[in-house]
């Protein structure tokens, strides 16, 4: 059963140094506040997984939380490069970052395989690309029935998944609406799951029978964090702050201005108030 608790406690209880951690949200519902709490608590040596490591992972990488990144697209959407990610890969600052690089199709399949309790995902992917030369976990195989050329990749089974959603009940059942990304798969693939929500309600009300709901008993901790996805958006609550993403380009370009920003906006700011 999910423990309804504070963000600070949810991260403290469920994220350890050295963990494999997946923070998902496909442009929508990105768990920024939870990421900031991980930085604030000084977590180290994390293996970070995310299909689209955007600004939140740039912040975690620049703050020295990450040892390895498993990903498929690392950029600032609609703006350009992630300068902290680039600095880590190109110059090893603040520390070297090991990369395991896939395509979106492969990552999405690997999450689904993890949720399904499978050790690997089997896909039609990477034909005539250079990915298999640099990513050793892409292994060619033949279909045992037809001989068709396929590839296998390991499933994603994180220690902990972190997502943001619109609503949870006081019991801890979670409702996700709008662009769903891979959040359901990430939660079901992980050993533990943390969900931040816009609001905790007594009852989810009149939702569609096919709505995306994660029952309380697949979630470890739920924390109410209004605007917890800011500067990304929460369908039905607030829209994306495009200016934040544009401004980030300048802040992150320089190590000093980045560190000043982290100090001012995260380290000296109270939990859940990092926006």
């Amino acid at each position: 059963m999910a423990k309804v608790t504070s963000l600070e406690n949810a991260i403290r209880d469920n994220v350890n140094d050295g963990d494999i951690i997946a923070m998902e949200g496909f442009t929508h519902l990105i768990p920024f506040a939870a990421g900031h709490e991980i930085i604030r608590q000084g977590k180290r040596d994390l293996t970070l997984i995310r299909m689209t490591p955007d600004v939140i992972y740039d912040q975690l990488i620049g703050a020295g939380c990450a040892r390895k990144l498993i990903f498929s697209w690392g950029g600032n959407p609609g703006v350009g490069s992630l300068h902290r990610l680039r600095d880590a890969v190109e110059k090893g600052w603040p520390q070297a970052l090991e990369l395991e690089e896939h395509s979106h199709a492969a990552m999405a399949n690997a999450y689904e395989a993890g949720a399904a309790g499978l050790p690997c995902a089997v896909i039609k992917a990477y034909a005539n690309t250079d990915y298999p030369k640099v990513t050793k976990t892409i292994v060619p195989m033949e279909c045992p029935f037809t001989g068709e050329a396929l590839v296998a990749i390991p499933s994603i089974r994180p220690d902990v998944a972190v997502i943001h959603a619109q609503k949870a009940t006081t019991k801890g059942d979670v409702l996700i609406e709008g662009i769903l990304g891979v959040q359901k798969e990430a939660v079901l693939a992980a050993k533990r799951a943390i969900v931040t929500v816009e609001e905790i309600v007594d009852d989810l009300g009149d939702v569609h029978p096919n709505a995306c709901i994660l029952p309380s008993w697949v979630v470890s901790a739920v924390a109410e964090v209004p605007r917890g996805a800011f500067p990304s958006y929460a369908h039905g609550y607030y829209s994306r702050d495009n200016k934040y993403y544009q401004d980030w380009d300048n802040i992150a370009r320089d190590r000093d201005s980045f560190q000043a920003w982290i100090d001012e906006n995260i380290m000296q700011s109270a939990t859940g108030d990092a926006s």
Binding site: W73, G74, S103, H104, A105, K124
Partner: peptide
């Protein structure tokens, strides 16, 4: 940034 969805 990498390939995202493009390879497939």
């Amino acid at each position: 940034p990498g390939g995202g969805g493009a390879p497939e």
